[in-house]
């Protein structure tokens, strides 16, 4: 953990170009409570990065820093530096709304808006200033979320009328429609059945061509199936007794699962965690 920065270097950036997001010595606090400590992490372009780790290890917290969602929580504070394409995301001059338009997010529970399927997608595009052919955008977004065939005859129906898996794909389509560069996914399959989960995972594979994806998951098989790189987080009790999360190891997914450098990673991925 003390030399986490070395794991950033383990990522082969030569093929992927400059990292899209750099996380430099980031610590996250809620009031006086430190949730995440000293994370160094680079996210390469057009790759899928999975965050795994036990509950309370700060992986979701860190994910939410990338689109400044933690701003909404009173008392949340970020130390260190998170840059997106060399721009400091926490620079006072940076508009968080603009950040969220570049870095989209799919949430744990499907949360379509109480509007028609069509409007669910058109709304985000419209507020982001999309001026083109809306019908075309809706179709394209639904197709890229592998949902078009199921809903093309009922675009006027409420998004809430869909099944859970369809709703989640609608939420992905909605995020795709605003054409962000990065998509953050916070346990996107935890509320879905296995079939829907597989469909979403297939989708992630397709979306990788166009987007950089960071996915938080509790499901290690999922991480090994979808992710190019995997970051393992763990939680540890600090001097004051309160637990904080930290990055243990970050590497290519096959290294994490087959030949992890740290013992705790080995224990976690093999299910011997205690």
């Amino acid at each position: 953990m003390m030399n986490s920065s070395t794991y950033s270097d383990a990522i082969d950036n030569s093929a992927a170009g400059h990292p899209v997001i750099r996380t430099e010595n980031v610590s996250i606090f809620y009031g006086n409570f430190q949730a995440v400590r000293n994370v160094f992490l680079d996210i390469p372009k057009n790759k899928v990065v999975a965050f795994i780790g036990p509950s309370g290890c700060g992986k979701s917290t860190l994910l939410r820093c990338y689109n400044r969602l933690n701003d909404l929580i009173p008392g949340a504070r970020v130390e260190g530096k998170i840059t997106y394409q060399n721009i400091d995301l926490y620079d006072p001059k940076v508009d968080p709304v603009e950040v969220r338009r570049r870095i989209g997010m799919v949430f744990q529970r499907p949360n379509p808006f109480p509007k028609s399927i069509y409007e669910n997608i058109a709304f985000g595009a419209r507020i982001n200033g999309y001026k083109g052919d809306m019908d075309e955008l809706v179709e394209r977004s639904l197709r890229s979320a592998a949902l078009w065939d199921e809903v093309k005859d009922k675009l006027k129906e409420s998004g809430l009328s869909l099944s859970g898996g369809q709703q989640q794909r609608l939420c992905i389509a909605r995020t795709v429609a605003i054409e962000p560069e990065v998509i953050l996914m916070d346990e996107p399959c935890s509320a879905l059945d296995p079939i829907s989960t597989l469909r979403v995972e297939d989708l992630i594979h397709d979306l990788k061509q166009r987007f950089t994806i960071i996915i938080v998951t509790h499901n290690m098989q999922q991480a090994s199936r979808v992710a190019d790189y995997t970051a393992f987080f763990n939680a540890e009790a600090g001097e004051t007794g309160s637990r904080f999360g930290y990055l243990v190891e970050y590497d290519k997914t096959e290294h994490i699962f087959n030949a992890p450098k740290e013992k705790s990673t080995q224990d976690y991925v093999s299910g011997r965690f205690g």
Binding site: R100, F113, I127, N128, T175
Partner: peptide
Amino acid sequence: REVRQGLVGIGATNFQGVFSV
């Protein structure tokens, strides 16, 4: 809360979210 987060997630301002959704 999920709907509010969704609105924030697609880059809606507070005003847009409140009055459209």
